[in-house]
Design a binder for these strands. Sequence first.
DNA 1: CGAGGCTCAGTAAGCGCTTTCTACGAACCG
DNA 2: CGGTTCGTAGAAAGCGCTTACTGAGCCTCG
Lengths: 354, 354
Amino acid sequence: MAATLADVAARAGVSSATVSRVLNGNYPVAEATRRRVTEALRELNYVVNGPARALAAATSEVLGVLVNDVSDPFFGVLASGIQREAAEADLLTMICHTAGSADDELRYMELLLRQRARAIVVTGGGPEDGGHRRRTADLVRQSVARGTRVVFCGREAPPDSEAASVVFDNHGGAAALTRLLLAAGHRRIAYLTGPPHHTTSSARVAGARQALTEAGIDPDSCLWIRSGFSRAAGLEAGRELVRAAVDCTAVVAGNDLTASGVIASLRACGVRVPEDVSVAGFDDLPVAVDVVPELTTVRLPLRSGAVTAGRIATGTERTAPGVVVRMPAELRSRESVAAPGGGLSGAVGLPRER
Amino acid sequence: MAATLADVAARAGVSSATVSRVLNGNYPVAEATRRRVTEALRELNYVVNGPARALAAATSEVLGVLVNDVSDPFFGVLASGIQREAAEADLLTMICHTAGSADDELRYMELLLRQRARAIVVTGGGPEDGGHRRRTADLVRQSVARGTRVVFCGREAPPDSEAASVVFDNHGGAAALTRLLLAAGHRRIAYLTGPPHHTTSSARVAGARQALTEAGIDPDSCLWIRSGFSRAAGLEAGRELVRAAVDCTAVVAGNDLTASGVIASLRACGVRVPEDVSVAGFDDLPVAVDVVPELTTVRLPLRSGAVTAGRIATGTERTAPGVVVRMPAELRSRESVAAPGGGLSGAVGLPRER
DNA sequence: CGAGGCTCAGTAAGCGCTTTCTACGAACCG
DNA sequence: CGGTTCGTAGAAAGCGCTTACTGAGCCTCG
């Protein structure tokens, strides 16, 4: 049933090589022949056999993108930016959902490597685990050796690897955001950190701590609460903050999604934002301006970072191996941060602790 | 650099057939031999060549999932359900983002077909366009002929095709939702339909119209507004409704995302939900209970639908070709719908029209 | 008018794997 | 002790494609 090149060739009365040439257009073929072949191609409903082509040509037309969470808009922006570049280079993008699991990340990298993907883009932050880094570095090495380009977008490639990286200035952004809060007069700040042992979380925490220290404030006098990067995590955290009547005038969420959750649950508990408590986000996702009040946040140039990563991955942009492209972060001051108000405990009418 | 089976065989002092057998474990191999081979495999850092294997075995280990929008939680739920089943069957899931484009949908189907994917799951609704249906039907036929199973999840497979379908009762759900609103006393309802010429939108509209007609109300006395399925579309629509001071006491959004947008923009304009205007959603996504007030919506069993689709796709569950599995919809009555209030125009202090 | 150049197309050698067929011992049995 | 069976592994034939390499015509030009 499935027609092969040979079938088409027979029907068109030519050799299979000619059919291949018509298909790929990389060698001259006389117009008349081309027409006959094209005809036969259509008549037989020919569909090229990808594996066979990939085997013979030692390359394929797929670009793999690894994302932590397909339903997180952060990755949506990244993935669609990369996809656009891939399409430009006639590659088709396949997105693999790792669910934030380090093992799945490796599994998919290996799968893509096995499939001889043209390139692999690993997006988002990753585990800070040494074993994982080492295994990742191994895979990167093998991939590069087999001609699969690897690009990291959102974290640095393992040291000494040939893979390029596009990284966002999480550290600087977090520091700037903290300085903004300090300038507004906040001193008691609750930080919802992202998932622990995660490069992105750590960089943001480190940036914030540095800004605090530089302002002469002991970072440990602030609250550091482990949370996730989802809206649900923010809702949960918001409820917890209120329940514990935490003594703070500002909450810095791990990202905008979390911030929107925090705001929703604070308001549901009667806490006004920003009158009672200021809330800040991170990333400047579309949701940041959908929320009421609009979020003060840190804008990461995700789209252009994705495009850069995509261009490196497709080879449109040639770079030195192991290059690290740094993308700046930029403060977006909007409505959700104001001068310190009564704080959480004040707002809900509980005795302020400490 | 890239070690092949033959390299491994040479190193282990066996034939490549033996190495293949060790790799696949489908033929008996003496323990001692196996050990030597395994050793060589590791020493040479062997990575199987997917295309070569796929070519020889005429099948691959990938399951493709087509989604309209990777960053829409509706598809997130679907994709992760399918992925779980795929993982169970030792297949790896690749998600392709079609951006709702009919052309991309076909392109990706063809890509997956070319790659000899084990199965393809097409999720979500699709264009009602005849040409597209026909081309889809063609591809399905070819896929099946080549041993790639095709499953539709969220819309029916083209007529007479071998592909299975898992469909959600959009029609019945929309009817039930409308009846709920009618029972609450609403008569002037604004419907934000999803994207036009889209199977899901149409089914929901048809269900609502039927319920209206059955209640003796002329469907055309209600407002039918084209919108999208995103939160942004809801925000936009909400603003429009207020701006035009539309005379209605209830808004039925295309889905929960849109509903959350509508609520946000209505409230931003000083309209109370549900006191002034009731708002209903569709799908019962996690966001439905995150929103304030919690959304009255229609629950679609997305997760179990996805699992079913996944099981059919992987072959875990054997079904007759062309089977259509229907999943029921279920009303979820929560806070966002109440008895009719002053309506939109009343709330914003504009003269009520008509 | 024959040599050299061009254009176009066929031949055939793989790409790296799976799998059938075959072969070789060793063990078993009557 | 010859013949059968069983367990194990090699030889080799593809899978469907790409791509040198080769060569047949035909044109051009000295």
